[in-house]
């Protein structure tokens, strides 16, 4: 235990500085503006993540967001275990036919105001699976989407930058 403690103390805080926000973040709809306004400028956002059929690339990057380097918690953002607790729904991957119902119910159970984030190229329009018989399409073909963060997969910084820029833009 002492070894662990001394390691903790000598390492210090390793969290990297917050990413620079994109000043010209445009894709802000009425819904997200309203949500951010109701939720006190998005000071506390709870995320429920749904993997609608991705390669798990996005999930790796999301997991990385919780680690000591990216530390998404410092922005007041946390992951929760139930869609009923969530303010933000992040969806990754093209929506496969098998996951369509799960995605719809998760969205239905989220209390308003809610923000939907499509994470990665697959989630935006189906990506390389576009048109496949097993895929319904992008997330916006199933539920309304507020923020789209491109990349295959987007890096943790991309995700952070996308999210925070959208919130900042909605706040102004």
């Amino acid at each position: 235990m002492w070894k662990l403690l001394s390691k903790i103390i000598t390492t210090g805080t390793v969290t990297e500085p917050a990413p620079a926000l994109e000043a010209d973040f445009q894709i802000v709809g009425e819904n997200i503006r309203n949500a951010v306004h109701t939720l006190y400028g998005g000071r506390s956002l709870r995320i429920r993540h749904v993997d609608a059929g991705s390669t798990n690339g996005e999930e790796y990057e999301l997991t990385a967001l919780g680690n000591a380097y990216y530390d998404i918690e410092r922005f007041g953002i946390s992951f929760v275990a139930s869609p009923r607790h969530a303010d933000v729904l992040t969806v990754s991957g093209p929506v496969t036919r098998n996951m369509e119902h799960a995605l719809r119910t998760a969205y239905e159970m989220m209390p308003e105001p809610r923000i939907v984030v499509a994470l990665g190229d697959g989630a935006i329009d189906g990506g390389i699976w576009k048109g496949s018989y097993a895929v319904v399409g992008g997330v916006r073909d199933v539920i309304p989407v507020d923020i789209e963060i491109p990349g295959d997969p987007p890096s943790p910084f991309d995700v952070l930058r996308g999210l925070l820029s959208a919130i900042a833009a909605a706040r102004s």
């Binding site: 903790i8 390492t11 210090g12 805080t13 390793v14 969290t15 680690n67 000591a68 530390d71 918690e73 410092r74 007041g76 946390s78």
Partner: peptide, 9 residues
């Protein structure tokens, strides 16, 4: 969070 070398919420 500090124990995990994070900045924390």
């Amino acid at each position: 969070a500090r124990f995990q070398n994070r900045r924390g919420a």
